[in-house]
Amino acid sequence: MPVARYFMFVGGALLALLFLIDAYSPSQAVIASHAAPAIDRNVVRIRSDQKLPERVVYDTSLPTIVPPAPKVRVAAAPQPPVAIDPTAQARVRNTFAQFVPVDVKKPEPQVQRKRKVARIRANPPIRLAQQQHFGFFGNNTW
Rank of each mutant, 00 (worst) to 15 (best):
V30H: 03
P80V: 15
T95P: 01
F7K: 02
R93G: 13
A4H: 13
R91D: 07
V82C: 08
L15A: 11
N140I: 10
H34N: 10
W142Y: 12
W142P: 00
V10C: 06
D85H: 01
V43A: 09
Q89Y: 04
P81H: 00
N94H: 04
F136C: 09
R73P: 00
A38N: 10
N94C: 11
D40A: 05
D40E: 08
T87R: 05
P125Y: 00
R47C: 03
Q132L: 12
I65V: 15
V30C: 07
K105E: 03
V57T: 10
G12H: 02
V100F: 00
W142V: 12
V66F: 04
P63E: 05
A13R: 02
R127I: 05
Y58A: 11
V104I: 14
A23M: 08
R121K: 15
E54D: 05
V104Y: 05
I39D: 02
L14Y: 14
V72I: 13
M1Q: 06
V43F: 14
V117L: 15
D40V: 01
K105W: 04
P67N: 07
R127N: 07
G135D: 15
I120N: 13
P53A: 15
F96Y: 12
F99R: 00
D103W: 01
A129M: 07
I65E: 04
Q98V: 04
S25H: 07
V102R: 07
K51F: 04
V72P: 00
V111E: 06
D85P: 00
K116S: 15
P2A: 14
H34Q: 09
R5K: 05
I126W: 03
L17T: 07
V3I: 13
A90M: 02
G135V: 01
K71V: 15
N139A: 12
K106V: 07
P68E: 03
Q131N: 07
A88V: 07
T95N: 09
A35M: 08
A97F: 11
V66T: 02
L17H: 03
A97M: 13
P37Q: 10
P53Y: 02
I120S: 04
P81E: 02
Q112W: 01
A38M: 11
P86L: 07
P53I: 05
G12K: 02
E108G: 12
L18M: 10
V3A: 12
R113L: 03
P63L: 01
D85A: 10
N123G: 05
R41G: 13
A4L: 15
N42G: 09
Q50E: 13
P86I: 03
V104G: 09
S33Q: 11
A38G: 07
K114D: 13
V66L: 14
R41C: 14
A36K: 11
D103P: 01
F9H: 04
R73Q: 12
P107A: 13
S48P: 00
A97S: 08
A38Q: 06
V100A: 10
K51M: 02
L52I: 06
T60S: 08
F9N: 09
V100P: 01
